[in-house]
Simulated assay, not measured.
Amino acid sequence: MLGVAASWVVQVSIEVYRFFISVFKSNDEDKEVDTPEQVRLLGQKIALTSIRCSSSLVFASIGAGIGATLILPSLGQWIGCAAGDLVGPIIVAFCADKAFQVTL
């Protein structure tokens, strides 16, 4: 859980940093930038990052349970947890892209 939380903090920090850099650069160059649109996109990116990280935890738990049932308890739990942790965000990202057709 700590690894996923750290990943979320880093990803959100990078997106917020990019947002502020783009806003400050646009003010320096006197270009018109749609700030409300930029804020909306930032909100979408943070929401998708939160969903991906949460799905990582959920799918890791599901994978650990399935792996412990199908394989030896300790080894199966480890393998299932790792597989769920890797596959969960991919499944959610794919479904989110299909459902929302977000252009980031």
Results as ranks from 00 to 15, higher is better:
Gly76His: 03
Ile62Gly: 06
Ile71Gly: 05
Gly63Ser: 10
Ile62Trp: 06
Leu72Thr: 08
Gly80Tyr: 01
Cys81Ile: 08
Ala83Leu: 14
Gly88Ala: 01
Ile62Ala: 14
Ile71Ala: 07
Thr69Met: 11
Gly76Ser: 04
Gly67Phe: 06
Thr69Lys: 13
Ile66Gln: 04
Leu72Trp: 05
Gln77Leu: 15
Ser61Phe: 13
Gln77Asn: 13
Gly80Phe: 00
Leu72Val: 04
Gly76Met: 02
Leu70Phe: 07
Leu57Met: 05
Val58Leu: 08
Ala68Thr: 15
Leu75Thr: 11
Gly88His: 01
Ala60Cys: 07
Ile66Glu: 03
Gly80His: 01
Cys81Phe: 13
Gly88Tyr: 00
Leu70Ser: 03
Val87Glu: 07
Ile71Thr: 06
Ile66Met: 11
Pro73Leu: 10
Gly67Gln: 08
Ala82Val: 02
Val58Phe: 02
Ile79Gly: 06
Leu86Asn: 07
Leu86Ala: 14
Ile66Ala: 14
Asp85Asn: 09
Val87Thr: 14
Trp78Arg: 10
Ala68Val: 04
Leu72Ala: 11
Gly76Leu: 03
Cys81Ser: 13
Leu72Asn: 12
Gly80Asn: 03
Phe59Glu: 00
Gly63Met: 11
Ile71Glu: 06
Ser74Met: 11
Gly84Tyr: 02
Gly67Thr: 08
Ala83Gly: 06
Gly76Arg: 04
Trp78Glu: 09
Leu57His: 00
Pro73Lys: 13
Ala83Thr: 14
Ile66Cys: 07
Leu57Phe: 02
Thr69Ile: 09
Ile66Leu: 15
Ala64Lys: 12
Leu75Phe: 08
Gly76Asp: 03
Gly80Ala: 03
Gly65Pro: 13
Gly88Ile: 00
Ala60Glu: 02
Gly76Cys: 05
Leu86Glu: 04
Val58Lys: 00
Val87Met: 13
Leu75Asp: 07
Leu75Cys: 06
Ile71Cys: 06
Leu57Asn: 00
Leu75Pro: 04
Ile66Pro: 08
Trp78Asp: 08
Gly65Val: 12
Ala82Glu: 01
Ala64Asp: 06
Gly88Val: 00
Gly84Thr: 01
Gln77Glu: 12
Ile62Arg: 04
Ser61Leu: 14
Trp78Leu: 14
Gly76Trp: 02
Ala64Cys: 15
Pro73Cys: 10
Leu70Gln: 03
Leu70Arg: 03
Val58Glu: 00
Phe59Gly: 05
Ile62Val: 15
Ala83Ile: 15
Gly67Pro: 12
Val87Phe: 14
Ala68Asp: 10
Phe59Ala: 09
Ser74Gly: 05
Phe59Arg: 00
Ile79Val: 15
Ser74Asn: 12
Ile62Glu: 04
Gly65His: 11
Leu86Gly: 07
Thr69Asn: 10
Pro73Arg: 14
Ile66Tyr: 10
Ala68Gly: 15
Trp78Ala: 15
Cys81His: 09
Ser74Thr: 14
Ala82Gln: 03
Asp85Gly: 10
Gly67Ile: 06
Leu70Asn: 03
Leu75Arg: 09
Gly63Ile: 10
Leu72Tyr: 06
Gly80Glu: 03
Ala68Met: 15
Val87Pro: 07
Ala83Trp: 05
Leu75His: 07
